[in-house]
């Protein structure tokens, strides 16, 4: 798949996702330019998770269009997989494979591009040690951890490993659903710093979060409320009252 540099890594056009009581997403449109870092805010139930699920292809919208690098999701399984390979997701629960080593987990991010022989070899031998060591270094982890089982890592190390795995995947689009939710303030700030740092070159970042104090590093803030985009501004333009209005309960 060719991708010209100016194509937006992610474009959503009038996305509609029905819900049980009210629609989960209503006419949501959003475009991420290459290298852009966008924060997604809004109260619980506003549709942030749904929007991210649509963005990474787990959920297909009822109406509207999703474009990755300007291309709609492919019908053919193989091409679709190649598209997915360019979308990296940082999961709130990390979703590391507990039974495997750090190295094997990092290599798991390459499975979309690897054939069976390498995929199987990865379960027998340490593969691509240099590349893995390099990504670990970028998230401030020691290469000595490569041979360790994931279960041996501390909470903070696991967060970094999940991020390193994303780097190893080398996606064009980074998605993260409240990655900072359960972290202590210091770790949250560190991780966010790392994430923002990774969105460079053509790689765009879309991240949902709850905390207004962490919005500074983003290029744009998009706010959802009741399934609609209610605000799209740069962090510096954002006022405290706007944020307060966003989170006010609907009593």
């Amino acid at each position: 798949m060719t991708s010209s540099p100016d194509r937006p890594p992610l474009e959503l056009r009038a996305i509609q996702v029905p819900g049980r009581m009210a629609p989960r997403l209503m006419e949501v449109s959003l475009q991420l330019r290459p290298g852009e870092r966008v924060a997604l805010v809004g109260p619980s139930g506003a549709g942030k998770s749904t929007l991210l699920a649509v963005a990474n292809g787990l959920l297909s919208p009822e109406a509207g269009e999703v474009l990755w690098n300007g291309v709609a999701p492919a019908r053919s399984r193989r091409r679709r997989r190649r598209q997915q390979a360019l979308i990296g997701t940082l999961w709130q629960d990390l979703r590391l494979i507990e039974e495997l080593t750090v190295q094997q987990n990092l290599n798991a991010a390459r499975l979309a591009r690897w054939g069976w022989p390498r995929a199987l070899l990865n379960l027998v031998l340490p593969l691509d040690t240099a590349a893995n060591a390099a990504v670990l270094e970028r998230v401030d982890l020691s290469a000595l951890l490569l041979g360790q089982p994931v279960t041996a890592l501390s909470g903070g190390q696991r967060q970094r490993l999940a991020l390193a795995r994303l780097l190893r995947q080398d996606p064009l689009l980074l998605l993260a659903d409240e990655p900072l939710a359960h972290l202590d303030p210091r770790l949250a700030r560190e991780l966010l710093g790392l994430l923002l740092e990774q969105a460079r070159g053509r790689r765009a970042l879309l991240l949902s979060l709850h905390r207004p104090d962490l919005l500074d590093g983003f290029d744009r803030v998009v706010a959802l409320r009741q399934g609609r985009v209610v605000l799209d501004a740069s962090p510096s333009e954002l006022t405290g009252s706007q944020l307060a209005a966003l989170y006010r309960s609907e009593a």
């Binding site: 598209q83 979703r95 995947q169």
Partner: peptide, 13 residues
């Protein structure tokens, strides 16, 4: 199913 889903979302067959 979570880890499997995550792999699938990253394009793994």
């Amino acid at each position: 199913v979570l880890a499997e889903e995550a792999l699938g979302a990253a394009g793994t067959g």
